[in-house]
Simulated assay, not measured.
Amino acid sequence: MRLFRIAAIRQPDAVDSWRAAPIGFSLTEIRILSYASIALFFGVNALGLLIWGSAYFEGFASFAKGQSIALTTAYVIAALLAYHVMHELIHIALHPDRGLSDRTMIGVKAAAFFVIYNGEISKENLLRVVIAPFAVLTPLCALAALAPFSPIFLANMFGLHLSACAGDLLLYRKLKNGPEFAWMWNAYTSAYIK
């Protein structure tokens, strides 16, 4: 595994009958995902207020009570980072090399973590890689709902989870409904299939 650098991206050999794949996100789709994530945050909290009323904030208030704003903010940021790292590690665990070669790259762009596998990967394995965080973390989030966490924590955990998985779910749909292929090569700004 290595840190992402655009200069390190390898292209597939032209002699291997690779062709450009019309799979990826348009600027409009990226904007829709971004705005939907923001709307989800406000929607989840509005729903929480509707269901639990003022009790919705009591768990967070008791957690933050006696702590500085800086410390409370640090806890929230640490929790967000931990979730996103776990999400990306689940993707990596299903890469063909399990993240142990320089084909797996990790990076951050526009405050979002990402991983790519810059090499040949079967369609079946790619579908597993893309859907894995949703398949693994959704039941864990549901189990967390059984624990005595505050409503605001639970609502925002589910909101964060769905927001983080939105791009994965859209990509999964594109791969399932897109062109037929057996193998894909991800080159970050382009993809190739055969």
Rank of each mutant, 00 (worst) to 15 (best):
A46F: 15
A46C: 15
A46Y: 14
A46V: 15
L47A: 15
L47K: 06
L47F: 15
L47P: 07
L47D: 11
L47E: 10
L47N: 12
G48V: 04
G48W: 00
G48I: 01
L49G: 15
L49C: 03
L49E: 02
L49R: 11
L50A: 15
L50M: 13
W52C: 08
W52D: 08
W52M: 06
W52A: 10
G53S: 06
G53E: 03
G53C: 06
G53K: 02
G53Y: 00
S54L: 09
S54F: 13
S54R: 15
S54Q: 15
S54A: 14
A55L: 15
A55G: 12
A55T: 14
Y56G: 02
Y56C: 08
F57D: 07
F57E: 05
F57Q: 07
F57N: 08
F57V: 09
F57S: 09
E58G: 07
E58Y: 14
E58M: 14
E58L: 13
E58F: 12
E58H: 13
G59D: 01
G59T: 11
F60M: 09
F60T: 13
A61S: 11
S62F: 13
S62N: 14
F63V: 14
F63Q: 01
F63C: 04
A64M: 00
A64Y: 00
K65E: 13
K65G: 14
G66K: 03
G66D: 01
G66V: 04
G66E: 02
G66H: 01
Q67I: 02
Q67A: 10
Q67D: 10
Q67S: 12
S68P: 10
S68G: 15
S68E: 05
S68V: 08
I69E: 10
I69M: 10
A70K: 09
A70H: 07
A70M: 08
L71A: 11
L71S: 09
T72S: 11
T73M: 09
T73E: 04
A74D: 03
A74Y: 08
A74K: 06
Y75P: 05
Y75E: 04
Y75C: 08
V76K: 07
I77N: 02
I77V: 14
I77C: 07
A78D: 00
A78N: 01
A78V: 09
A79Y: 04
L80Y: 11
A82H: 02
A82C: 10
A82K: 00
A82N: 05
A82R: 01
Y83S: 06
Y83H: 09
Y83T: 05
Y83E: 03
H84R: 07
H84A: 07
M86V: 14
M86Q: 05
M86S: 09
H87Q: 04
H87P: 00
E88P: 03
E88K: 02
E88A: 04
E88S: 07
L89D: 01
L89P: 07
L89Y: 10
H91R: 04
I92A: 07
I92Q: 02
I92T: 08
I92C: 00
A93N: 01
A93S: 09
A93C: 08
